[in-house]
Design a protein around this nucleic acid. Structure first.
Length: 154
DNA sequence: GCCAACGTTGGC
DNA sequence: GCCAACGTTGGC
């Protein structure tokens, strides 16, 4: 079982938005980056867990935990000309973009902030991708050690 | 295949 | 709003 970190702008889709969905489950859609796509399509598996990270907001940080409820499948929003994430180059016969379904497992009582994570950027979290400068990837792997350490910060 | 220009991300 | 960093595009 692997661990991941998924970024979302809470103004667009927050952990509370996920909590409000039926069965607290939603497709993680709109990812338009090949590296992230490959992980959604090929690497993420049912039973994996991921941190739900809030980016581009007042207090960036990890807001809770989701589980991956199934393997990747094509992102339907790419097929819809009226959708903001429409991509005419992605066709149902040859899909370019993928999603996984995620289910909210737990919302932290307080966000584990980016500031807090950075305090360990030279030690336990020195390889955490989200702490690397210039990092923009919205889907990143998290090692078991990083996962356990971050949970101990809650 | 190179690389400049452009658009986007995301912290501040 | 600013700007550094990055991915993608397109001309050559």
């Amino acid at each position: 079982m692997k661990h991941w970190l998924l970024k979302s702008e809470p103004g667009t889709f927050s952990i509370d938005d996920l909590a409000a969905r039926p069965r607290k489950t939603s497709a993680w859609d709109g990812v338009r980056n090949y590296q992230a796509r490959n992980m959604l399509r090929d690497s993420m598996k049912k039973g994996d867990t991921a941190f739900f990270y809030h980016s581009s907001c007042a207090v960036p940080g990890i807001a809770g935990i989701v589980s991956i409820v199934g393997n990747g499948y094509p992102d339907a929003t790419a097929f819809d000309p009226k959708h903001a994430h429409y991509d005419p180059q992605s066709k149902p016969s040859e899909p370019r973009w993928y999603v996984v379904d995620v289910k909210l497992e737990r919302k932290f009582t307080t966000v584990i902030t980016l500031d807090e994570l950075r305090k360990h950027a030279d030690s336990e979290l020195k390889d955490l991708i989200v702490l690397k400068r210039g990092n923009r990837l919205s889907v990143t792997p998290v090692t078991k050690k990083e996962w356990d350490f971050i949970l101990s910060l809650e």
